[in-house]
Design a protein around this nucleic acid. Structure first.
Lengths: 343, 343
DNA sequence: AATCTTTTATAAAGCGCTTACATAAATTTC
DNA sequence: GAAATTTATGTAAGCGCTTTATAAAAGATT
């Protein structure tokens, strides 16, 4: 494979000139630049990335760390981040935490320390104290998205407010009997940022003076089947059924809609359903939701990180806690309406 | 940040010993190894990856190139590949082609040439002649999965056989009126390997002596909503409706099931439905399908690539065309049954 | 024509590791 | 116990680029 010396020889200049010409820098005559470009093209030369990195200290590579990749929210985030990064000349190295504790440890201990990435995009991960320490030791910008990261910047929607917004919509329609499908509250590492949406929900109920039936606050695994079976359970006894369900995610809301239909009931006539996310399938299901514009969010975060990286001022690149709240909005479709009992 | 010299100084040995000790190589005394390990731990030292790469020529990094990431098949492949790679000490760099033609060109022209990856896992991509050329010039192992790659190894199921298998199942149940939801056949770059499943379907019909109503061979975009609306169309006229639908993917099959229910009909009593994939949601929908065990497939391919990379014989690492067929099997659940008209 | 600027090109010094080769220490063999 | 062998350690030469200091060429100024 051709190296910089081959190009220099063919173009009849020094390697320094080749380097400058190809990097688009000053102090290269037009004539030399053309010769170099022609030679590089002829040899199919592309500068070795590791040599570039070793010489400059720059990787042009961003690490993305997320707890799953085969879920809509994460896959969508990832796809948008990748496109944005490629467009700006950056590679994306994926670190996926779904492989269990040992793998998670390996990623934090061995991989992140290798100085292979210029910065880190951390999507909805909840690092432990040790992991936080590793992150800080990296001395590289870290940007949290989909949830805050201690001691680092973050861009995330306010899960509490989003949950409150959704529930307030239901209340404003006249619903008083409102169920919630939320998340597990297991170990710290498993803690899901989205669980805060339930807190917002509860706050909205409290402000409206509504006392909730404890059976209507259900834990669920954020999947369609999970929500489906929970709903069957929830609506099993018609005398004690809610008139509306707020789900912490659209995927669960879709499961709820399916279950309602399966029971021979109708959405929104018999049960109103609202979720959070604006999932790609939500429009199809006519689901009312809180739109968190995942793609724009991912793009904005990625661009922000790139700006931080480009900043000449090293002080700016030092991490500081600087949370930016990503605005969300209610998106009313056809899955929510006034409760029938009110009519 | 600590470098190898710092560790050497602290441990009271030379950098060569540090390198050998940390790489777990021979010719290091137990005493020295322990001193080095202690020093490395104290300083939080991890070898710089670019220096390692420059010195050894190895990246310990695999490129994964795929047309989408926010679809179940691809996201699942990706997640499994990542876990498998991390487990074996490799990073994963993602190249996603969904960003359009310009981005695709950029990836092939600029990124792949950077010698940043040791090998490439190409998931269901159909490279053009030029792109194939780039791939070959890389002089790195390439393994196709989810579809063959010219001049390279591949591990993939036989889409033709899978389509045939699914349709034969329907025929063996007594169905003669069978529709198919398949893919677009647009430009070469957009060509979807999964479209071959339709060819297998047609072959099965032909062998059974069935002449298909041309209106029952429908193009569809491999999504749930797409299949939903196609099905409404297909079953709109009951006098001219098929008794079974074979879908090139489970996602479409799910859309079909929803549409059938929405029309007040039942699966499988009124319409049998079968797909291909064994999507995570297929069990929930009771969908009969051709199981292609995506996770095992991804893991097998990744391990194979790693073995090729580990092989001392450089001849083995040279690419050759060596297609391995991934076996699939029929998985009958409750969405297929004998046609009612036969009873 | 001689001097001073400005522009363009080069030589060479790293970047932080690995590893072949050289050397020293420990072990075995006669 | 000396020679031969094995094992441990160190020295230094790369790996393939970028970039700083330096020199050469070209232009501008007297």
């Amino acid at each position: 494979m051709a190296g910089i010396e081959d190009v220099a020889k063919l173009a009849g200049v020094s390697t320094a000139t080749v380097s400058r010409a190809l990097a688009g820098k000053d102090h290269v005559s037009e004539r030399a630049r053309q010769k170099v470009e022609a030679a590089a093209a002829e040899l199919g030369y592309v500068a070795s990335h590791s040599a570039y990195t070793l010489a400059t200290g720059r990787n042009r590579n961003i690490g993305v760390i997320m707890p799953y990749v085969d879920r809509w929210f994460f896959a969508t985030m990832l796809e948008t981040m990748e496109s944005t990064l490629i467009e700006h000349g950056y590679d994306l190295t994926l670190y996926n935490l779904s492989g269990g504790k040992m793998q998670r440890d390996k990623i934090f201990k061995d991989f992140l320390g290798r100085k292979r990435v210029d910065a880190l995009l951390s999507v909805a991960v909840n690092p432990s104290a040790d992991e936080l320490d590793t992150l800080n030791r990296l001395q590289r910008p870290v940007l949290g998205i989909g949830g805050p990261i201690q001691g680092a910047r973050s861009l995330a929607m306010n899960d509490f407010s989003a949950g409150k917004l959704a529930t307030e919509h239901l209340i404003s329609l006249g619903h008083r009997k409102i169920a919630n499908l939320g998340g597990y509250t297991g170990s710290d590492l498993e803690f899901n940022q989205a669980n805060f949406r339930t807190l917002g929900h509860l706050d909205a109920l409290k402000e409206a003076g509504i006392t909730q039936n404890p059976a209507w606050k259900m834990e669920c695994d954020y999947t369609i089947p999970g929500a489906f079976f929970r709903t069957k359970q929830l609506l099993g006894d018609p005398r004690n059924a809610p008139t509306a369900v707020f789900c912490n995610s659209d995927e669960m809301a879709i499961g709820v809609i399916m279950a309602v239909k399966d029971l021979g009931l109708q959405v929104p006539q018999d049960v109103s359903v609202i979720g959070i996310d604006n999932h790609d399938l939500s429009e199809f299901f006519g689901l009312s939701t809180v739109n968190q514009r995942v793609r724009e969010q991912a793009k904005t975060a990625t661009m922000w990180l790139l700006e931080i990286l480009d900043d000449a001022d090293p002080d700016v690149r030092v991490n500081r806690h600087e949370s930016v709240e990503w605005p969300v909005s209610l998106l009313v479709r056809s899955s929510t309406a006034r409760p029938a009992t009110e009519a």
